[in-house]
Amino acid sequence: MHWSELAIELTLMPLVAFVVGLAMVLMMRKIAARLQRRVGPPLLQPLYDIVKLYGKRTQTSHGMLHEIGIVMAVGGYVAAETLLPVPGMNGIAEKGGMITLLYLTMIPSLGLALGVGQCANPNGSIGISRALTAMLAYDIPLVIVIAGVAIHFGTTNLVDVIAQQQAGGIATWGAVQMPLLAIAGLFALQGMLGKQPFEIYVAPAEIATGPMVEMGGKFLGGLFVMQCFQLYTASVLYVTLFLGGGENWIAFLAKAFAVLVIPMSIAFLFPRYRTEDMITMLWKWPVVLGLIGLAFVGS
């Protein structure tokens, strides 16, 4: 591949992710509104929020790390998007693979954790402690799923995973081949998105939005951007592993949005679990499902 082509891909992939992510945020809020018989926000509401937050005239920083934390949170996702293949663009997906992607997506969280840590606000610290706990909870089923998929396709290269699924049509999709893992993956997805019933680390009424408690202005704006990336990454990863990736942009976007509808519809029907209940929940059903699925993959 020519370097200029690569450079264009590397620029476009995060941009696409951001734009799609904005739409996904809007969809999430719309779904919530419709479920509550509300009208919901206007089309550009996610953008308004971000622009407003960046445009705040006075903003509070708790120190360099607080700022770097946001830089890492956004920058880490910008980097991670280039490892996630989309139709026609592979970026550097072949140089990393799914394990690298999985670990790279921890970088934004780590950055956020650093930034929050410096805020010296116990609500934030509790939030991070809960977020990490949640990660421990949902990553176990997630890792089982990833291991199953990697073994099934015999590779950790996401480009190969997509190619193999697209070669055989729907019958070779991960979701068809490994339905149990796909279901387990949905649980993990719910946890990954941090939506109800797993919304333990935001918990506005309890710990004042946890990690976000001291975030205002562009600090919060950065986190809104990060949320766009987060939704995009989770959904596209799921599409890549189980739904054959994107044959073309239309199919790709349709799948990506469709995948998100499930956790979002569930989210607004439930209250929040307590931390320990979330752990119990995620270590029980999806893990059992995943392990059974894994046994089928292995055989």
């Binding site: 509300r38 926000p41 009424a205 939005t209 976000m212």
Partner: peptide, 22 residues
Amino acid sequence: MTSRFDMERLGISPMVSPRQAD
């Protein structure tokens, strides 16, 4: 806030911490 008047359609939503709020 809720379905009768739905502030969110105006882009208004509740926030918890003073840092976040307008």
